[in-house]
Amino acid sequence: MLNQYGYPSPEQVKSKFPSLEILVKPKAIVECYEKIPCNPCSTSCPFKAITIGEDINNTPVVDFDKCTGCGICVYSCPGLAITVCEVLEDKVRFKIPYEFLPIPKQGELWHAVNRKGEVIGEAYIEKVTLTPRQDKTQLVQVLVDKELLYEFVTIRSQDYE
């Protein structure tokens, strides 16, 4: 599926999520399924929570005990393959990387989009950060419905045709 269409199977996606008990705190979901020579997620983590090892072709392994969900890896991943996820009472909070215009604004409602690019619901924009350290990759914090936990991956402007 991934090799042919560019999106992972639901099983692949779920394999990257820790249990719901762990997700009561924000944790990095690293969707890196393929051995490629790359390791910025690991070297950028201030808590040494992501391990790749000396062979940079290894896929990353997240230690959810160490991960604080800070989001530094989200904008450090050249493949934009990392989000941070936190399960709340009836919503899920995500921090996602975003590299498009217009820049979302706090309080706006955007489309919630799945890995196939389909609109699956609404995303409430809680916060947008763009510091020089992020090097032009915006970090967007959103709230989506809880049932979208394993579905949601990005946002799209409701004005986009």
């Binding site: 560019g6 969707e31 393929e34």
Partner: peptide, 12 residues
């Protein structure tokens, strides 16, 4: 790289 493919696919 599939990460590049996934970036595109999620844009539809």
């Amino acid at each position: 790289y599939k990460v590049h493919a996934s970036k595109l696919r999620r844009l539809g």
